[in-house]
Simulated scan of single mutants.
Amino acid sequence: MTWNGTTIRLRPIRPEDEAALRTFFEQLSLEDMHARYFCTFRNPEHAQLARLTQIDYAREMAFVAMAETPEGNAEILGEVRAESDPDNIEAEIGIVVRSDCTGRGLGTLLMKKIVAHCRKQGTRFLAGTVLPGNRRMLGLVRGFGFAAQTGSHSDGIAIRLPLSDDDSAGNEEQTQEN
């Protein structure tokens, strides 16, 4: 697919993506790193990278947006991940786009991919937590119909999206801006 004049491929993360994921983390601004992971880490350990690239596909999915560098290497431009509970009722999501790629629709492409995947898997809800100052993420999830509720989580704003029509009744948005 083409995104902003660049050929990209959205695909599940693989163990061999460890080096590209390390480079991806190095290219994130500290602000973007903190907004996604609620902390900053520039040089993740091998074990941490292995955990992020060697996933249990039965309960977790991570899609990466890959592009080719001028040198012919694969690079990660963005990543979205969902990890479901054992009963596949709810999956916690997280998304991050490389700092130089934000604001151009890549987050929307990644979110569409993970929502479609989770629906296909029969997951009933997507949920997560967004830091109050992360306006880009709040705008993205609201555009997908997530309900947001401040004060429901000590670290930020709880977000939730029903993935089936059966679960959407009574799930009106409960956004309270401060």
Rank of each mutant, 00 (worst) to 15 (best):
G122L: 10
T108P: 00
Q149A: 14
R160N: 10
A148W: 11
N73G: 10
C118V: 05
L138Y: 14
R81M: 03
G94F: 14
E90P: 00
I114Q: 01
I93P: 00
Q121I: 13
I157K: 11
F144T: 00
E83V: 15
A65C: 05
Q149L: 09
E75K: 01
G105V: 08
P132I: 04
R119W: 06
L109I: 13
S99T: 15
V130N: 01
Q149F: 11
R98N: 07
L110W: 09
N88S: 10
T150R: 10
V96D: 01
K112V: 00
T123Y: 10
I159R: 02
G78C: 08
A82C: 04
N134H: 15
S154K: 06
N134C: 07
L106V: 15
R81D: 12
D85W: 11
V130K: 01
F146W: 06
K112E: 05
T102K: 14
T150L: 03
A82D: 06
V130C: 07
L110Q: 15
A74D: 15
E71P: 09
G72I: 13
M66T: 06
A65M: 04
V97P: 00
L126Q: 01
R104H: 15
E68T: 08
D85I: 05
R160I: 09
A147S: 15
G145I: 09
I157H: 08
E71W: 15
I157Y: 05
I76C: 06
M66N: 08
D85T: 13
I93R: 01
V96R: 00
D87Y: 13
L109H: 12
A65Q: 14
K112H: 09
V115T: 15
A127D: 06
E83H: 09
R136S: 12
H153G: 00
D85P: 05
H153L: 00
G128N: 08
I159N: 02
R142C: 15
A74R: 01
C118H: 08
L77S: 00
R142V: 04
L138G: 12
R98S: 11
D85N: 14
I93N: 03
G128D: 09
K112R: 06
T69H: 02
D85Q: 07
Q149D: 10
E90W: 04
I89L: 10
E92Y: 05
G143Q: 07
H153N: 04
